[in-house]
Design a protein around this nucleic acid. Structure first.
Length: 864
RNA sequence: GCCCCCGUGGCGGAAUUGGUAGACGCGCUCGACUCAAAAUCGAGUUCCGCAAGGAGUGCCGGUUCGACUCCGGCCGGGGGCACCA
């Protein structure tokens, strides 16, 4: 038997055996319980980097562990293959996005296979394949027919020079990334999915996802953003230099819906509009009302008001991101109109158009209470509006002036007429009750969540299966004409969507009337692709997106693993899509992912030369000029600090790389890459090998040694329990430490049958992490079959029980001594032993302790 | 700006979730083996101190017999913010 494990030879050999034997095929025959382990599928960006390896190795350990525990494991792999980088490559390298993508897939598949992942490759697919996206188009039409898809105007980033839509990522400091022109917001008619119809159940469902990290559930909860509040009506009081429309009525009591002017464009100025507030208690602190620049009233007023038109145009500058909108300077335009306070007909407030009021949230209109909202306060100070305190933490502070900071804390109402003295909560209820009784408003729920805009003005995505006909409007592409396939002959010479410019692709006959019509040239958001791929992995018939019964047997995914950066969008969209399929009767699965684990990034040092040019670590080492060692950052192509696993695997073998990825850093936290670590892992792989080789040479059928070694037995069985528990909770770094401890103990232990058994246990426990080594050792020790299919050892409960425990002896909470006691010793006995300690006696100086706290099997704390 | 997370030796981290802080690994030091090196093995390694002892989990304060753990306030770093995936 070789003195060293040689991965360069062994890795490929075992990978071939696994492949030939179909070791990792999910059978789905129902003979064993099922487990579905899934890592977020990769975008084929070029080559695998070490961050991918970390992600897939984690899932792999769990998948192999589950298989050893008797599960029929589904552990698939595919490619999230549509996206912008392929189009960028097309522009820069003059290569077709498809060609670029498929070639990346080939490279990355080969690289992943080098890692020895226990994947069922028979289920692999790429989302850019018509055999995938055609089914996606069918699902889109299902949702369309169910009324869950609609079209509306929505804003995009517009590059006025390149005349093209920009992704948020393509807007750098408010400018187009290629043209450098200041970006504007422009309205476009786009397709939306009604995720807001599911807001309540998506929020509700979070409560039952008990195998999700709390922080992800909290983030989704905040994202969905349920707010209770009051929606109420402001009547317009006067319109300066403008005749007020005489109508004013037409509304019926209590029917605010009929009165709503929220989204509908209007021709003439209405007599009233609605605002929404979560703080109706502060209504007597109101000092202004404000509407969004997109509000119908603003648009009507702008028709013959050039200054307002200019102001609205000014508000359109800049991109669409929340960060940009919210950090923009708060600006307002006084319309000259005044609105009547709902609780006092003699009190009127100025009406502003303000850039910070979002048309998408609530009613697109607000009332401002500067004393208790920081944004309103800033606005009031800027425009010289009144600031009246209406909530005070104590009666003495009722007239305490508000400085630069709004008061958002608790307290009771002041300066608020009939509300004075009430708590804020009671005042909220009181105002809502009064509004409802008097008919000027009603308590309501609003959501921060907006509908999901899925239109993208890009080529490399799933074509939206709709035809636009002048006579019939938007018409669904008939099912028998799916998939709508992307044209191959396209050009990326000019910016914008090549589908738009294609001479023939979009020209089709209307499926309804047969007249000349035009294909939708927008493609679907790539988040749609990733919202159902896990269903397709479970079941992939040729003639349907999935087979319902088969998919329902595998789903939900038992353990989903991926980057925390997907905590909101991808995970929320996938949850929505799954629920939408349930609602339309296609798939009876409530939640797609039962268990979720969000892992940290792999980081690495960065280097720059004197000119600020980024250098790879290798370049930095051999660079002639001065080199600055930069921050440790997330691996990215642009910072040139990515680490390609392939040369490292070539040098150390897959197992050392796998082991290193699992060591040290807790998986949910970032891991800093270092070569020093990988050498340690290499050494460990060899240490296990030496133990196995030694036992193999000794020959386990004729175990030598001087009999049993109970300490080794106990250590081995405690390790079984600990490693199992730690793998199940994905605490791989702790499982690694457990295996190090066992290895250390076995290296020191003299030969014995116990030790021989323990070495075999060690090999089995390590198998999910270092599978090639484990197979090699398994074979060398003369075991039958593959260790990949061997059983996980069972821990003997009798060997897990401790007989003696070390008790900490504290005086006033400080450790002064320790003592050894039998497990389960009585409190009195422990107290007596502790007080007998010389060290304790010395500190007590003969005085009697005031109190003694005993925690059985743990500690005694003497309080003096 | 808003939401979320993280902060422990020279470094990565552990601590049964309020009960002996620093398991395990990396690095380093000393020693063994070697002509030498690599590999391997042994001992040591939070800080101050010869020691006794003292200090110590980003900072300040609080709760508790007892706080890395809970609470309040700060500082620093990271992720997400709806067209990056």
């Amino acid at each position: 038997m070789a003195a060293r494990f040689n991965p360069l030879e062994a890795d490929a050999r075992w990978q071939k055996v696994w492949e030939e034997q179909g070791t990792f095929h999910a059978s789905g025959d129902g003979a064993r319980p099922r487990a579905y382990v899934l890592e977020m599928f990769p975008y084929p960006s070029g080559r695998i980097h070490i961050g991918h390896v970390r992600n897939y190795v984690m899932g792999d350990v769990l998948a192999r562990y589950k298989r050893m525990n008797g599960f029929d494991v589904l552990h698939p792999m595919g490619w999230d293959a549509f996206g912008m980088p392929a189009e960028n490559a097309a522009m820069e390298k003059k290569v077709h996005p498809g060609e670029w993508t498929w070639s990346n897939i080939d490279t990355m598949r080969a690289q992943l296979k080098l890692m020895g992942l226990a994947i069922d490759w028979t289920r692999e697919f790429a989302t850019c394949d018509p055999s995938y996206y055609g089914h996606e188009q069918a699902l889109f039409l299902d949702l369309y027919e169910a009324g869950l898809v609609y079209r509306k105007q929505s804003e995009v980033n517009w590059d006025p020079v390149d005349m093209t839509v920009l992704a948020n990522e393509q807007v750098i400091d408010g400018r187009g990334w290629r043209s450098g022109a200041p970006v504007e917001r422009r309205k476009l008619s786009q397709w939306f999915l009604r995720i807001t119809d599911f807001a309540e159940e998506l929020l509700d469902g979070l409560g039952r996802l008990d195998q999700w990290p709390d922080k992800v559930r909290l983030m989704q909860e905040n994202w969905i953003g349920k707010s209770q509040g009051l929606r109420f009506r402001f009547d317009l009081a006067s319109v300066e230099a403008k005749e007020r429309p005489s109508t004013g009525s037409g509304r019926t009591e209590g029917s605010l819906e009929a009165q709503s002017v929220r989204a509908e464009p209007v021709e003439a100025l209405p007599s009233s509009f609605e605002v929404f507030t979560t703080r109706p208690d502060t209504i007597f602190g109101a000092s202004f009302a404000a509407i969004s620049p997109d509000h119908p009233i603003a648009l009507v007023l702008a028709k013959d008001n050039d200054a307002l038109t200019a102001f609205i145009a000014e508000c359109k500058q800049g991109g669409t991101t929340a960060a940009e909108l919210e950090t923009a300077e708060k600006k307002g335009f006084d319309t000259g109109i005044r609105v009547i306070h709902p609780l006092d007909p003699d009190w009127s407030l100025p009406l502003y158009v303000a850039n910070f009021v979002l048309m998408d949230y609530g009613t697109g209109a607000i009332f401002g209470c500067p004393a208790h909202d920081q944004r309103d306060l800033d606005f009031a100070r800027k425009y010289g509006l009144a600031v009246t305190r209406v909530v005070a933490p104590s009666p003495e502070e009722a007239d305490e002036p508000i400085g630069d900071e709004a008061y958002s804390g608790p307290g009771r109402l002041v300066n608020s007429r009939f509300l004075d003295g009430l708590t804020a909560e009671d005042a909220i209820r009181e105002v809502i009750a009064r509004a409802e009784a008097e008919g000027w408003g009603e308590g309501t729920t609003v959501w921060r969540l907006r509908d999901w805009g899925v239109s993208r003005q890009r080529y490399w995505g799933t074509p939206i299966p709709i035809v636009h006909c002048d006579a019939c409007g938007p018409v669904a592409v008939p099912r028998d004409q799916l998939p709508v396939v992307l044209p191959e002959d396209i050009d990326f010479e000019t910016p914008g969507n090549p589908l738009d410019r294609h001479p023939t692709w979009s020209k089709v006959d209307c499926p309804d009337c047969g007249g000349a019509a035009r294909r939708e040239t927008d493609t679907l958001d790539t988040f749609v692709d990733s919202s159902w791929y896990f269903i397709r992995f479970a079941s992939q018939p040729g003639d349907a997106p999935f087979g319902r019964a088969e998919a329902e047997r595998w789903l939900p995914v038992d353990q989903y693993i991926g980057g925390v950066e997907h905590a909101i969008l991808h995970l929320l969209y996938a949850r929505f899509w799954t629920r939408a399929l349930r609602r339309i009767g296609k798939l009876d699965v409530e939640e797609p992912f039962r268990g979720l684990f969000t892992q940290g990034m792999v980081t690495h040092v960065t280097f720059q030369d004197a000119d600020g040019k980024w250098l790879t670590p290798e370049e930095a080492e051999s660079h002639s000029g001065p080199v600055t060692r930069g921050r440790i950052e997330k691996m990215s192509k642009s910072k040139r600090n990515t680490v390609d696993p392939e040369p490292i695997v070539d040098q150390y073998g897959a197992d050392a790389v796998r082991w290193f990825m699992l060591s040290d850093s807790p998986p949910e936290r970032d891991l800093e890459w270092s070569e020093a670590g990988i050498q340690g892992s290499w050494r460990f792989v060899q240490r296990i090998w030496r133990l196995a080789a030694e036992e193999a040479e000794r020959g386990t059928s004729t175990w030598l040694g001087d009999g049993e070694d109970p300490a080794v037995d106990r250590k081995a069985h405690r390790t079984i329990a600990a490693v199992g528990a730690n793998i199940e909770s994905l605490a791989f770094n702790k499982a690694v430490a457990n295996l190090y401890e066992l290895t250390n103990a076995l290296e020191k232990a003299p030969a014995s049958p116990s030790r021989s058994r323990a070495v075999e246990i060690l090999i089995r426990l390590a198998a999910p992490m270092v599978p090639h080594l484990a197979e090699e050792a398994w074979a060398a020790m003369g075991r039958e079959g593959l260790i990949a299919r061997a059983e996980w050892p069972a821990a003997d409960p009798a060997l897990l029980v401790e007989e003696e425990v070390t008790i900490a002896v504290q005086v006033n909470g400080k450790l002064r001594d320790t003592l050894t006691a039998p497990k389960g010793a009585a409190r009195e006995a422990l107290e007596e032993m502790a007080l007998a300690s010389e060290k304790v006696a010395r500190i007590l100086e003969g005085k009697a302790p005031r109190k003694v706290i005993v925690v059985p099997d743990r500690l005694v704390n003497v309080v003096s």
